[in-house]
Computed example of a mutant assay.
Amino acid sequence: MASPKRASLQIGKMFMELIVLAGVISTTGSTIQRPDYDDTANPEFLNPSWMGGIPDSRSLSEVTLPGTHNTMALYGGALAECESWSLASQLRAGIRFLDIRVRNIRGNLTLHHGVSYQRAHFGHVLEDVAQFLAEYPSEMVLMRLKEEFSETYDIYGPVVSYIHRYAHWDLLWHSRLVPTVGEARGKLIVLQDFAGPDLGMRYGSLNIADDWKVPTLLHVNEKWQSVQEHLDMAIVGNKAEIFLTYGSGAGVFAYPNAVAQRINARIYDYLTARMGQNLRFGIITTDFPGALLLQIIIDFN
């Protein structure tokens, strides 16, 4: 027979587990539109040309800009979905960093989040980006590109083929060097997370914090500590280096939307407390960002 103390500990553990499960369940129902978090179909407001006010001479590494993690993960259920806005809406809302994952099936590059097919292919991404940059030439788009749910380790050729078919070669920034804002306007900057000759910059050249594993909602504090430490580092870090901080995370008992509701709110408070200061944070990437959170990130420029 278990002692009263041990029984009490077991009950406490079960209670905490129920809280965790309740946290997951409670965030998978109706949609929410908050200043920091938005899983509705459309942004609260748009900001399509915000980079027009940044001086041409400024290095891209000194710009603070918002991004989305697993940008095209709109399908597959609560554990797979990371965003709710279309790519076109994300770009017009102010997102300038995209996280694109492609599955290579005999040269066909479909979009995936793990096993979840996202009902599109890489050509759709290129078409949306090209159309956006043609409409707003003051802007630029950074795109991390990697292979997902396939292990061919050979997507360079298909990527080049898609660029020629669905966009054009001159759309790309063809250098590993960090451009100035003026040099990058109207360009797609591929952050190459795969082998092969240079298409653009190398993803690994960035200073990255991506502690995405959040086993349960009880681990959110650990995730936030990682995010805050890297944002603090970006303020004082090498201004010639691009910093990239992922606010996203997930686990079996912590769906992306549940983590985002908690981490986005802390990012919002962290940035709001520093508004009006001349600070550089680099790329701040989230799941389900709210329009006002994007605006606050943008306003640091």
Rank of each mutant, 00 (worst) to 15 (best):
I95Y: 01
I11W: 10
I100M: 10
N70R: 07
G67M: 13
F45C: 02
Y75S: 06
I19H: 08
L109V: 05
S59F: 03
Q33T: 11
N108F: 15
Y37E: 06
R101T: 07
P48Q: 09
N108D: 14
R106I: 05
T28K: 02
F97H: 07
F97C: 03
N70S: 12
S86R: 05
A88P: 02
G23K: 01
T71M: 00
P43M: 10
D36G: 04
S89M: 12
P48C: 10
Q33M: 13
L18V: 06
S86K: 07
F97G: 04
S26V: 06
P35F: 01
G29M: 05
G76M: 05
L60F: 00
A41V: 11
R103I: 06
R101D: 04
S30E: 14
K13I: 14
T68A: 00
P55S: 10
I25A: 15
G53T: 05
M14I: 14
T31M: 08
G77E: 01
Q33F: 06
G107E: 09
G67T: 13
L46I: 10
S89E: 15
R58I: 12
A73G: 07
A78Q: 14
Q10P: 03
N108Y: 12
I11P: 05
M72F: 14
A93G: 15
G23N: 04
I54W: 09
D39L: 08
A22G: 15
S30V: 03
R96Y: 00
Y37D: 07
Y75M: 10
P66D: 03
E81M: 14
D99R: 07
P35A: 04
I100S: 05
A22F: 13
A22P: 06
V63P: 01
S30N: 07
T28P: 02
S86L: 08
I19R: 10
R34A: 08
D36W: 15
R34V: 00
A93V: 13
D36K: 04
Q90D: 07
R106C: 06
L109P: 04
R101W: 09
L21F: 03
I54T: 01
L74A: 02
N104W: 00
L87F: 15
V102I: 02
G12W: 06
